[in-house]
Amino acid sequence: MKKTVFLGALTLAGLAAGAAAAGTLDDVKARGKLNCGVTTGLVGFAAPDANGVWEGFDVGVCRAVAAAVLGDATAVEFVPTTGKTRFTALASGEIDLLARNTTWTFSRDTDLKFDFVGVNYYDGQGFMVPKALGVTSAKDLNGATVCIQTGTTTELNLADFFRKNNMEYEPVPIETNAEGQQQYLAGACDTYTTDASGLASTRAAFENPTDHVILPEIISKEPLGPLVRHGDNEWGDIARWTLNALIAAEEMGITSANVAELGAAAGGSPEVNRILGTEGNLGEMIGLDAQWAMRAIAAGGNYGELFEKNIGEKTPIGLARGLNAQWTEGGILYTPPFR
C-alpha cells in the first residue's frame, strides 16, 4: 500500500483496501517486502543478533522465499509473534508466511484454516532437567513442577502424558521461551518441557550447558513447518516448493557454493536443470521466473547448509540430523520430484 498521510492512512486504508484484495503474491511484489512471522527469540531458529539482524533456521526459510519471489534475500520484514498472536497475525494478513516452530496438527490445518506447506523440522517434545536432580527418565517426574509455554501443543501433550502415566505434576505457565529459561535456571521448576530442538537451543544459551540433560523420552510428534493462509493456493505453492527446492538441492548436491556454476548452463542431471531453470518451465508454472529456485538456494544454502550453519552439531545448539536427514541417508526428508 502506498504510504499516505499519517491520519489519512486510517481512512484511506479502509477505503482503498476494501476494493482490492489481490493474491498474496501480488501483495508481496507490490510491497517489495515479505512479511514473515517468527518467534520472539529462539536462538538457532529465529533470533535477532546483537545488531538486530534476524538469524536462524526458520529465518533461512523466510529469506529463501523472499529471494525466490523478490530476488532479494534481505527483503524480509520479520514480525516477532508469541504463541497467542501468531495465528491471528497470519489470518489477518499482517504476515504472509509463518515460519515459527509451529506444529502441524489436524485442527490448525482444518479448523483454524491454515495450510502447512511442508515440514522443515521433525521434532518431538522432550524434557530438560538439571543433572544434579538425578532424574534419568521422564517417568520419574511424578510430582515435579514443570515449566511449560502456554498456547502451544506441548501444553496439551504434557497433560496427556502425565494423565496416561497416572502421574501428578504442577504446571508453571509461561509466555515466552526467555521467561521459561529464567524460571528454569532459577529453580522455580524442576523441568522445562518444549520441543527437543527448542530445549537444545535454550540449553545452548546457558552459562553451563553441560549441567543440564535432555531426557531420552520424546512424548509427542511435532512436525514443525511453515504455514500460510488457507485459500491462496498460488502463494501456498510458492512457499511449499521453495522449501522443497531447498531439500531437493541437498539431495542433488546443489550448494550455495556451486549453485551459480550449475545454474549457468544446463548440466548432466535433468532434475538439477529443471530446479535451476536451465531446462523446462517450472518457474513459469509457479508464477515466477526461471531462476527462482536458484536464488532461494543461493540465499542461505540448501537445507543441509542451513541446518549445519544454524542448529547443526558444530553450533552451540548441537542438534544431530536424526530424522531430519535425507531419505537416502536414513532420515525422512523426501521431496516430491521436480517435474
Partner: peptide, 19 residues
C-alpha cells in the same frame, strides 16, 4: 488491538500494531 481488531477491518487492511 492485537488479535480481534483485524476481524473488524476490511479484508486485506493492515494497520501497524502500534497504530
Amino acid at each position: 488491538a492485537n488479535v480481534v481488531l483485524a476481524y473488524f477491518l476490511p479484508p486485506g487492511t493492515n494497520f501497524d500494531l502500534i497504530l
